[in-house]
């Protein structure tokens, strides 16, 4: 844990990008975690289906940031490939989800998530 924080956190740097010299993996992960938490909190606290959907998108992007950061850290492209894959799926999924939201809105004329409790046991 300690070694990760002190010695190895420096991203593998290319000399051309000196402007980011002080930025370590830790910073990226912090941003990612913050975004993810905001997404979770938003998802749990907001009632509007569209907002909740946007929150899930935010969590996706948080995960994407973390993946890119690790990709840069290990100097391979695995993480980037993942992110591109996720973005593609997310786009498709966004289309589907928004269509569903529209459909749900037509059924009950509301976007409140609590209006849909049919799975109550």
């Amino acid at each position: 844990m300690d070694s990760l924080l002190t010695t190895s956190l420096t991203l593998a740097q290319d000399t051309r990008l000196e402007a980011f010299a002080g930025v370590t993996l830790y910073h990226y992960l912090f941003v990612s975690a913050t975004m993810f938490s905001l997404g979770v909190i938003g998802f749990l606290s907001r009632r509007n289906l569209i907002i909740m959907f946007l929150c899930t998108e935010m969590m996706f992007q948080a995960a994407g940031i973390a993946l890119i950061a690790f990709s840069r850290y290990w100097l391979n492209h695995t993480g980037e490939v993942f992110v591109i894959f996720v973005l593609t799926i997310a786009a498709a999924e966004a289309a589907l989800a928004l269509a569903l939201v529209v459909y749900l809105f037509r059924r009950k004329s509301t976007l409140d998530a609590d209006a849909w409790m049919e799975l109550k046991g």
Binding site: V40, F43, L44, R47, M52, A113, D114, W116, M117, E118, L119, K120, G121
Partner: peptide
């Protein structure tokens, strides 16, 4: 244990989280 299955989306999400 049935009441825990409220049907509310956010309750499930809360459970997950």
């Amino acid at each position: 244990v049935r009441p825990t299955q409220s049907g509310g989306l956010q309750n499930y999400a809360m459970g997950m989280a």
